[in-house]
């Protein structure tokens, strides 16, 4: 179980995350945020594996990735 949270107000719409997502599930919103950018979002959260690659390339730290802790 994983979840990716896009901090819409921090996103500048650069789209770098869209190109690296292995599942190809990151899309740009039609709406704009407070800075006037179209922020990235993941409508199909259930397809997210929480790999974190999107967050790795995000220059604005607009992406937080959460994962279930593995049982030790």
């Amino acid at each position: 179980m994983a979840r990716v949270i896009f901090l819409e107000e921090r996103c500048k719409g650069c789209q770098l995350c869209t190109a690296v997502c292995p599942k190809g599930i990151i899309v740009m919103s039609d709406s704009t945020n407070g800075m006037g950018y179209h922020p990235a979002s993941v409508p199909e959260q259930d397809k997210c594996t929480g790999c974190g690659i999107c967050a790795l390339v995000c220059p604005d730290m607009a992406i937080v990735v959460e994962r279930e802790e593995k049982a030790v």
């Binding site: 500048k12 650069c14 974190g52 937080v64 959460e66 802790e69």
Partner: peptide, 27 residues
């Protein structure tokens, strides 16, 4: 759930002034 990827403690929680896609933010 545990945060697997979030802001490092050494960086203040403020937006960067850099242009969209500028990789200064990554560095």
């Amino acid at each position: 759930m545990k945060k697997a990827f979030s802001r490092p403690q050494s960086l203040l929680d403020v937006p960067f002034h850099y242009c969209p896609g500028c990789t200064h933010g990554v560095a």
